[in-house]
Structures are given as structure tokens and as C-alpha cells.
Design a protein around this nucleic acid. Structure first.
Length: 595
RNA sequence: GGGGACGUAGUGCAGCCUGGUUCCAACACGCCGCCCUGUCAAGGCGGAGAUCGCGGGUUCAAAUCCCGUCGUCCCCGCCA
């Protein structure tokens, strides 16, 4: 059952007409078996492809006897002569379809119980089963292709960044829990009772310290951990391409990254990346697209209609404006679909789940507009609205009157939903955009304080420094996100390299001097020893691979992902542990277990 | 923490709304056996395989209705 005296000479994807006449030894899995009673065919599969084995009872009786025992997914070694397929039996659907292997010797290297699902691309197995038998799922050519693409992307990242003077440097996985940001995964310390390490949410502080250390340019393809609820594009552990440079500017970082993506497109996707990647300020993205990650692949831009409804008779609109709110619209051209009244009502309910007080609508009809709120509009307003929106008859205009944030948010989601629902999103396109000029802080209603929009180590724009205490909301950050097809794939910033400014940022976040010292003393101290100006960026690798390979779930880009509850269906992690292990870790269970 | 969808042979699904001889649960693929010498989704004949996720309730009667619970997926909150 071992490889024994045999040596593999070719992969199963490799033999062509040029190999005819040669003796080849192939090893792989029995993909499909077609037993004609006499002659018997086996498609042998490995990482590279399929090759047809022909086992003839007259030419190779011993091999034939073995072959009759072979079942799906048996592991085989086949020795034979590469032969052209008889005229008319070539298979143009296979790269190896011009030839076949006339087997002289067949060894069973391992048997296999029947797999729970067939190892093939057009698979109908549910994700549960796939995750439980992930090693079989990963045998499928499609999954192998994704992991290969992921590898190639990483290879380009390493070689490109290397060529630009970056060093790949590792940072600790057992790290320190810090406030701000996501919930940490904690690791109890056996040697230090009552103390815990945290798994890194990102190597942020270490990479900044590497800049203080004079490493100049750093990168790492690194695992990060965040103990938050999961989504189709979020896993508790995920991989980042993490980058940091000294003596740099946002422009230099953008150029560097565009160069990287140009290489990835060239070498992995074999297409060109249009450059330069356009840039858009956060405020513009929010107002035109209702999100900080705009998708340019379709239209449906958000309309600002405040001035038009300045003296509206519609009390709800007038009230929103009086409170300093805004009235914004989204115009849906005719022809997409017929909207029933109940569907529109459902949409309004949907809008309320995002905090909107409602979702009004008008249908362009005849000379003006119809719909429940049309009666509040003067013919003058209606005419102006037609001019402003260029609405063709039959168009549907959704309207939200609310605070800027809520209105933009709801219409941004509506825009994305409608584009998807009405099939307005072109496939196979890659639209990148840099989003810049983020606000430094946003107010957290929950915590009743300002929190960092990017992270607390981001530098404010120098010209906004004076307003840090007086008007935090107006301070812009030296931060930038890279967005691909409406998904944030990476973000970064110039950091605070001077301790004094970093202290002021902490203060604006409500982190007093004492707490700052306790939680971030090591950083503040390091910044005092001649920290160079520096900045960087980080990319979500799993998400990037997902987008570049056209997948819909991050799980398909990760060999062994977890479910939405953070469970590994294959190993059943997380699991309970022995009482002894808990004692050693100085951990005692509370809650339902001790009740 | 909240909303929604789903859970039926190894796999994918039908049946559920309107409970009962189309339900001791159908179909397809897979599996097992036999036949078959050029297939590549091989073909033909036959066969095995299901505590209808789990627990409780309603009812003369539950895959079907109700309650609870577990699991998976999608979303909101959350994720600097």
C-alpha cells in the first residue's frame, strides 16, 4: 500500500499527444470508474487534472483484476504507456483528452470509504457537510484553484514588497489587551495567575515600534483576531497584509499600493489595472453614494433635494429640514420592475430598521408625480423636481427626510440593494477607489463619547489640530481606505509620531493621562525616543481573494473556516477542557455551569 | 442582544400552507449485487438505505398544527 518501488513521473494534468509512446507513472484518486465488463476506464485525478486510464483485461489481466476492486476516491498508482485515443473517442473537454494511459500495472495505495458528496465542481452539498468534511471539499478543483490564487497573490505581495525595500517581520501572537476597537480573544497565562494575553486584532502597535526601531519598511502577511459577530465576509480569525513605512506620505503609500495591485492583476488575473485609482473624499462618498465604500459599477446616485423642499407643505419634510436635517432621493428609472403598493410599504418598514422615520416615494406620471405624498407638492415643486431628477415617466423616486447620517445611510443601502435586486451590477468589473479625508472622530451614542473612526494612532490633519478639543467632529484624519466594488479591502493612515500629539488624541477620546500611561505607556515612551514620521496600511487578504476570484463568502477563501457561531464543524472547536487544564490556567467557570 | 430563512435516507431535494390509503414518506445522485469490450454524467436489470434535528403539547390521528430547544445560513446591532 506504499508508493513502494514506484516513482511518479507526471501529474494527471500533464500528458499530451507529445508524450505518446512514453511510459508514465501517475498517482492520484479514482475520480470515476466506468466498467464495461471487459475494458475498464478510470479517470485518475490529482491537483493538476484528470487523465483517463484504460485497463484491458487481455493486455493486463492482473491490473484488470485490481481495477475491478477500485471504488470512488481510492488512491492509485498506475504505470503504463501513453497512447493516442482511438479516432472519435478523444475528449475535447479535457486538456489531456487526446491521450490515455494503457495501464500495465495498477497499485492500490489506499482504499476509501464512499465520500459523503462527489468530489466535483458543480456540487450540491450543503455548507455544513462541506465544512464537516473540509478535506474532501478542498479536493474539488474549484477549491484548489482558489487556494492556488490565494498563494499566487501572496507570492506577488512578497516579491513586490521585497523589491521595494520592505522586510517581512513577525510580531507576537500573544499580545496585550488594549482598549478601543474590537473585543479581544483572551489567553490565560499559567505562569502569571489572573493575567491574560490578548490575540492581536492587528499588529498595529508592533509595526509602529518597528518604525521607531529604524526598520524603515515592514510588511507581514499575518493572522488577526477579533471576537465579534460574524458575517459572510467576517471570520473571527482572518489574514491581513500589513504594511508600514517611515518618512512617508499618503501619496507615496497610494502609489506603492497601486503598483502592488497592478502586479497582482498582471500576474494573477492577467489583466491590466487602470491607473491611477481615482480618489474621493469621504464627505463626497457619503453624500453621493451614502457609504464610505462606494460602488461605481452602477449609477443610482443619491440626490440632495433640500432647496427644492425649502417651503414644502408636507409637514414631515418641513419638520426634518427645520431640525437641520436633509431630504435626499434615489431615482429608479422605469423598466426595472413594477412596484406594488405592498412592496413599497415593506420597503418603508425595511428603512425603519436602519433608523429612518420613513421612506416616501413618488412615481413620475403624466405631467407630474403620483403617490401618497404627491398631494403635498405644488405643481411648481413637481416641475422643478422633474427638471432636477430628469425623471422619465414611470420612474420611481424614493425620498428620505432625516438627519444627514440616517438619510445617507438608508439610501446608500437602498441603492446597493436595488442594484443587486434589479441586476444592475455588471460582472467581471473591478472598480477601485481611494476614499480620503475621513473624519478623525465619530460620536458614539452608546458610549456617549468620541471614538476614533480609524484607530487612535491615526494622525489628524495638521491644519485641523486646533479644533481637536473644541470641535472634534470637524477634525479630519490623515487616513485613506481602498475600496473595491463597494467593499473596503484595506485602510491605513499616517500615524502620530510625536508623543505630545498622541497624548492629545487620547485626551480627545476620553483616555486620561493616567489610563494612557497604563494602557499605552510603552508606545508613548517609544515615541519620545526619536520616532520617525511614519504611516502604513493593511488589507484584508481573505476578502481580497474573495473579490478577485468572484466568490461570495470569505469562507470559501479560507481552508478551514468557522461557522457564524465561531465553531469549526470539522474539529468541533471550541470544546470544553479538563478541570486540570482550567486549574493550571487559573480559570474558573461561572454562569450556567456553576448554577 | 434582535429580525428572517432553513433542518426529511450517504448527498441534494419533494411532501408541510389545507393533519388521515399518492406518507410503514416520493424523486435524483451516490452505495451494494448481477450483466455488458471504447466510455468519459457510460448503459441495462435488481437491491439496501429515513428514530422526518431534538423535546414537549394539541388531536381519534402529526413529517404536516402549536410551544420550547439545538444547529446552519443571511441581515441589524457589533466589527477603531
Amino acid at each position: 500500500m506504499n508508493v513502494g518501488d514506484l516513482q511518479r513521473t507526471h501529474s494527471c494534468g500533464e500528458l499530451r499527444a507529445a508524450h505518446v509512446g512514453r511510459v508514465a507513472t501517475l498517482m492520484g484518486w479514482a475520480h470515476s470508474i466506468r466498467d464495461h465488463g471487459g475494458i475498464l476506464f478510470i479517470d485518475l485525478r490529482d491537483h493538476a487534472g484528470l487523465t483517463q486510464l484504460v485497463i484491458d483485461p487481455e493486455r493486463a489481466p492482473e491490473a484488470h483484476a485490481t481495477a475491478r476492486q477500485v471504488r470512488s476516491e481510492f488512491v492509485l498508482a498506475a504505470v503504463g504507456e501513453v497512447a493516442p485515443r482511438p479516432q472519435g473517442t478523444e475528449n475535447p473537454g479535457l486538456p489531456t483528452g487526446q491521450v490515455e494511459l494503457h495501464v500495465k500495472r495498477l497499485d492500490v495505495l489506499n482504499e476509501a470509504v464512499p465520500p459523503p458528496f462527489p468530489i466535483e465542481d458543480d456540487l450540491d452539498a450543503g455548507e455544513n457537510t462541506r465544512l464537516q468534511y473540509r478535506y474532501l471539499d478542498l479536493r474539488r478543483p474549484r477549491m484548489q484553484k482558489v487556494l492556488r490564487a490565494r498563494h499566487e497573490i501572496c507570492q506577488v505581495m512578497r516579491s513586490y514588497l521585497s523589491s521595494q525595500g520592505f522586510l517581512e517581520i513577525e510580531t507576537p501572537m500573544l499580545s496585550k489587551s488594549t482598549p478601543e476597537g474590537a473585543r479581544d480573544f483572551l489567553v490565560p497565562s499559567r505562569l502569571n495567575p489572573g493575567r491574560f494575553y490578548a490575540l492581536p486584532q492587528s499588529p498595529q502597535l508592533y509595526k509602529q515600534l518597528l518604525m521607531v526601531a529604524g526598520m524603515n519598511r515592514y510588511f507581514q502577511i499575518v493572522r488577526c483576531f477579533r471576537d465579534e459577530d460574524l458575517r459572510a465576509d467576517r471570520q473571527p480569525e482572518f489574514t491581513q497584509l500589513d504594511i508600514e513605512l517611515s518618512f512617508t506620505t499618503p501619496d507615496e503609500i497610494c502609489d506603492l499600493i497601486e503598483g502592488l495591485f497592478a502586479r497582482i492583476f498582471e500576474e494573477v488575473l492577467h489583466t491590466d489595472l487602470p491607473r491611477p485609482i481615482p480618489r474621493m473624499a469621504y464627505a463626497e462618498a457619503m453624500s453621493r453614494f451614502g457609504t464610505d465604500a462606494p460602488d461605481f459599477r452602477y449609477g443610482l446616485e443619491i440626490l440632495v433635494l433640500d432647496d427644492l423642499f425649502r417651503s414644502t407643505a408636507f409637514k414631515i419634510f418641513a419638520g426634518a429640514l427645520a431640525k437641520g436635517g436633509t431630504i435626499r432621493g434615489l431615482l429608479l428609472p422605469p423598466g426595472g420592475k413594477e412596484w406594488s403598493r405592498s412592496e413599497l410599504d415593506r420597503r418603508a418598514e425595511w428603512a425603519k430598521t436602519f433608523g429612518a422615520s420613513g421612506l416616501a416615494w413618488l412615481r413620475r406620471e403624466g405631467e407630474g408625480w403620483s403617490g401618497p405624498i404627491a398631494k403635498f407638492m405644488s405643481s411648481q415643486e413637481g416641475g422643478e423636481l422633474v427638471r432636477r431628477t430628469n425623471a422619465a415617466p414611470g420612474s420611481l423616486l424614493f425620498l428620505v427626510a432625516d438627519s444627514r447620517d440616517v438619510a445617507a445611510g438608508v439610501l446608500g443601502r437602498l441603492r446597493r440593494d436595488l442594484a443587486r435586486e434589479l441586476n444592475l451590477v455588471p460582472q467581471g468589473r473591478f472598480d477601485f477607489v481611494w476614499v480620503t479625508d475621513f473624519p478623525m472622530f465619530e460620536f458614539s451614542q452608546e458610549e456617549k463619547r468620541w471614538v476614533a473612526m480609524h484607530h487612535p494612532f491615526t494622525a489628524p490633519r495638521w491644519e485641523d489640530l486646533d479644533r481637536m478639543q473644541s470641535d472634534p467632529g470637524s477634525v479630519r484624519a490623515q487616513a485613506y481606505d481602498l475600496v473595491l466594488n463597494g467593499t473596503e479591502i484595506g485602510g491605513g493612515s499616517i500615524r502620530n509620531h510625536r508623543a505630545a500629539i498622541q497624548r492629545r488624541v487620547f485626551e480627545a477620546l476620553g483616555i486620561g493621562p493616567e489610563e494612557a500611561e497604563r494602557k499605552f505607556g510603552f508606545l508613548l515612551q517609544a515615541l519620545q525616543f526619536g520616532a520617525p514620521p511614519h504611516g502604513g496600511i493593511a488589507f484584508g487578504l481573505d476578502r481580497l481573494v474573495m473579490l478577485l476570484t468572484g466568490l461570495e463568502s470569505i469562507r470559501d477563501t479560507i481552508p478551514f473556516p468557522k461557522t457564524q457561531k465561531g465553531i469549526c464543524l470539522m474539529t468541533d472547536a471550541p470544546s470544553s477542557v479538563d478541570e486540570r487544564q482550567l486549574r493550571e490556567a487559573h480559570v474558573r467557570l461561572v454562569g450556567s455551569d456553576s448554577d
